[in-house]
C-alpha cells in the first residue's frame, strides 16, 4: 500500500545545523536515501542556512541544491523587505519565481514578529498569489497562525509539528479557517487522522517527516495504518500538498 502512495514530504531541512545530534546529522544524500527507503519521492526543503544563518544566502543555496537534485522543491525563508536584504511586494514574487520557490516560511529567529504591521503587506501579496506559508509550531505558535488567518482568510498556512496536546486549539482553527493545515509528525492523536479527515477533510492533513531530526517511519506508519479510504490516504500522503504548492503565473510575475 505505502509503496504506491504519492508521498511528498513537507518538513525536511537540508544543510549543516548549529546543534546537530550525531545520529541525525545527515548529509543531503543520506536524507534522500532515508526518504527513498519509504518510497518518498519528493520533499519540500528548507535550507539550514536560511533558518539558522542568513535567509538570503540560505535561499540561494536552497535553489542551487534543488536545481541539482530533482527530488527537492525549494521553500524560501521570507523576512520584512524594509531592511533591504530581500524584495517586497510584487518583487517578492519575482524573487520566489526566479529561485523556483513553491512555498515560503517565516522564522521568528530572524527577529520578526508576525503580529506587527510589516506582515500585512507581505501576507497580502502571498495570499493574492496563492503562495502557501509553512511555519514550525515551536517558533510560530497557533495564536500567531490564528491571527494571520483571521486577517488573511485565503492564505494557506501549514503548521509543522503541531503538538498532540493542542486538539482544543487545533480543532476550532480547522473549523474556523478553511486554509489552515497541519503537519502531523508530532500530532499522533489516537484516531486523530481519521477524525480530522471525517470532520474537516483529508486536505487539512499534510504529511511530513521532520528529517533529518525525526524518524520518518513514525508518520509513514501513521498514514499506512490509519482507517482511511485510499483516496483520503493519497491526499494526505502528498496530493493535498501538491495542490497547494505555488506555480507562478509568469505573466503575473513579470507585470
Amino acid at each position: 500500500m505505502g509503496n504506491t502512495l504519492p508521498w511528498l514530504d513537507v518538513n525536511c531541512i537540508i544543510g549543516s545545523r548549529s546543534r546537530p545530534r550525531s545520529e541525525s546529522n545527515l548529509s543531503p544524500d543520506q536524507i534522500h536515501a532515508a526518504l527513498a527507503e519509504w518510497g518518498i519521492g519528493q520533499a519540500l526543503v528548507r535550507h539550514s542556512y536560511a533558518l539558522e544563518y542568513d535567509p538570503v544566502i540560505g535561499n540561494r543555496l536552497c535553489t542551487e541544491f534543488c536545481r541539482a537534485n530533482s527530488w527537492a522543491i525549494p521553500c524560501y525563508a521570507v523576512v520584512p523587505h524594509q531592511t533591504g536584504d530581500m524584495p517586497g511586494g510584487d518583487a517578492l514574487l519575482d524573487y520566489l519565481a526566479e529561485g523556483g520557490a513553491r512555498a515560503v516560511t517565516f522564522h521568528p529567529a530572524h527577529g520578526i514578529d508576525l503580529r506587527c504591521a510589516w506582515s500585512r503587506e507581505t501576507c497580502a501579496v502571498l495570499e493574492q498569489a496563492g503562495v502557501p506559508v509553512i511555519v514550525h509550531d515551536e517558533s510560530v505558535g497557533l495564536g500567531d497562525v490564528d491571527f494571520l488567518l483571521s486577517r488573511h482568510p485565503n492564505l494557506h498556512i501549514i503548521s509543522l509539528r503541531v503538538n498532540y496536546a493542542a486538539t482544543r486549539l487545533i480543532y476550532p482553527m480547522l473549523a474556523i479557517h478553511p486554509t489552515f493545515h497541519i503537519e502531523f509528525s508530532r500530532f499522533p492523536v489516537h484516531f486523530g487522522l481519521e477524525e480530522i479527515t471525517a470532520r474537516f477533510g483529508a486536505d487539512r492533513l499534510i504529511f511530513g517527516t521532520g528529517l533529518p531530526e525525526w524518524d520518518p517511519a513514525v508518520t509513514v506508519g501513521m498514514v499506512t495504518h490509519a482507517d482511511l479510504s485510499e483516496t483520503d490516504r493519497t491526499i494526505i500522503a502528498g496530493d493535498g500538498l501538491r495542490s497547494l504548492l505555488w506555480t507562478p503565473d509568469r505573466s503575473e510575475v513579470k507585470r
Partner: peptide, 9 residues
C-alpha cells in the same frame, strides 16, 4: 497517542 507511530518506529 496513536500507537501506530511508535510501533512503526
Amino acid at each position: 497517542i496513536d500507537p501506530a507511530g511508535t510501533l512503526c518506529c
